[in-house]
Design a protein around this nucleic acid. Structure first.
Lengths: 229, 229
DNA sequence: ACAAAAGTGTTTAGTGTACACCCATGT
DNA sequence: ACATGGGTGTACACTAAACACTTTTGT
């Protein structure tokens, strides 16, 4: 049995769509590149797969070195193979998306970037490479995922109110959802546990604080989005 | 701006899960390998990405040379990155699945394989590499996809009866679905067009023949599977 | 007392499910 | 005439949507 020698292989990059939620806004982290190609352009954070790394290893390395983050929700999106997607040569990109709570991290621009900034997902600048399409795939995936799976908690604080969760859903789905029906669905599904505590110091009635119920086997909720016409 | 030179990069393979449906059975195409590694083992058909190819180019080349097929439904599944998945060295695999009508192709074993055979998806042999997991991902994707999207037609003849479509769904989902409710859903969604013709020469009443309605914009059907408990 | 947001309940329309029944064909 | 599968209709249960109302807090 022959081992491989080095044939000509495409390079393999991992590109990250890092979502954060703050002040009723869903944002993505973008880097401003210091070097060609796409110097001074905004792009998704990314990096090349090292020989001994798994994709998740590469994700962690990027998150750590370029953004100063660790231990976040990550999921593979899709692999992008347009031969012209990188002017430096043939590069395949594996897209991942991450969900983080911006309050937990102080983002830092690594040595490769002029700047790192959160951008409202509805007000993105022009992106380098094919990152526009990777981003679109990520947002679409997040929108679908949140309808059936309890991923919203990754974006919120450990304790949150139903209203905060409701606002998060409306923000991500970019639509309105009936407050009372939403509450019932979430509670019936038992994806949240009432802590008995209340959020103090608000102008009006103090809402109850909930915590994510991690130990629940079945996916038994579904949020429906109004059909637009 | 520097161009790339050859860093050490993993090899990139494309592995195919080719589904076919015949005689009320959903099958997958497997190759019996002539060479190490996994000599004489059954594996998914696959091949290495050439420098100038897209993933779909590679898929077509594999389908053409190893199986004698062309022009089939293809969709990307997932990328598999376990560093130990190929004993020859670091190989990333991009999984695709294909839906074909076995009646339309005469499969041929390419020079690399001892044999090519259809296997019932519920009675698979042990597979080489990590192909068991690629297959599992494919079957799961097909099961989900068929609930919301009209992909079943790729597996059937151009003209088919509602009963044939119904049996296909039961076979893929591995469950029973009420015959009459299934019919209504499919017809209401207008995914099929009644041709006016009938299937002749059967023992009983001659069922009407339908054709897939390719020119339909919206996905407006959903098949529900009974919840098992 | 009032405003504003949180929390609870109810009515109604629509949809999916489980059936029963008739129809067409070959033996 | 009967068996067998194809085609049509309907009653019921269940769910989701729309909405009204009460409660709690700060001013």
């Amino acid at each position: 049995m022959k081992l491989f020698h080095e044939y000509r292989n495409p390079s393999l990059a991992v590109d990250l769509v890092v979502f954060g939620y703050h002040d009723n806004t869903l944002s993505v982290l973008l880097l401003n590149r210091k070097e060609e190609p796409f110097k001074d352009c905004w792009t998704l954070p990314g990096g090349f797969l090292q020989m001994e790394e798994t994709f998740l290893d590469t994700c962690s390395r990027i998150l750590q070195t370029k953004l100063g983050m660790n231990e976040v929700f990550l999921e593979q999106l899709y692999s992008f193979d347009d031969p012209g997607r990188d002017p430096r040569g043939r590069v395949i990109a594996v897209g991942y998306y991450a969900l983080i709570n911006p309050a937990k991290f102080k983002i830092v621009a690594g040595s490769m970037a002029n700047d790192v900034k959160w951008f409202n997902v509805r007000k993105l600048p022009v992106l380098g490479f094919d990152h526009k399409y990777i981003f679109k795939a990520a947002l679409q995936r997040l929108k679908s995922k949140i309808l059936y799976h309890p991923v919203g908690f990754e974006l919120l604080d450990e304790l949150f109110t139903i209203t905060e969760l409701h606002e998060l859903y409306e923000c991500i789905l970019h639509t309105t959802l009936d407050r009372r029906n939403f509450r019932r669905k979430i509670l019936d599904a038992e994806y949240v546990i009432n802590t008995g505590m209340k959020r103090e110091g608000l102008k009006n009635r103090h809402p109850e604080l909930y915590r994510f119920n991690k130990h629940l086997k079945k996916n038994n909720f579904q949020i429906n989005v109004p059909t637009e016409s």
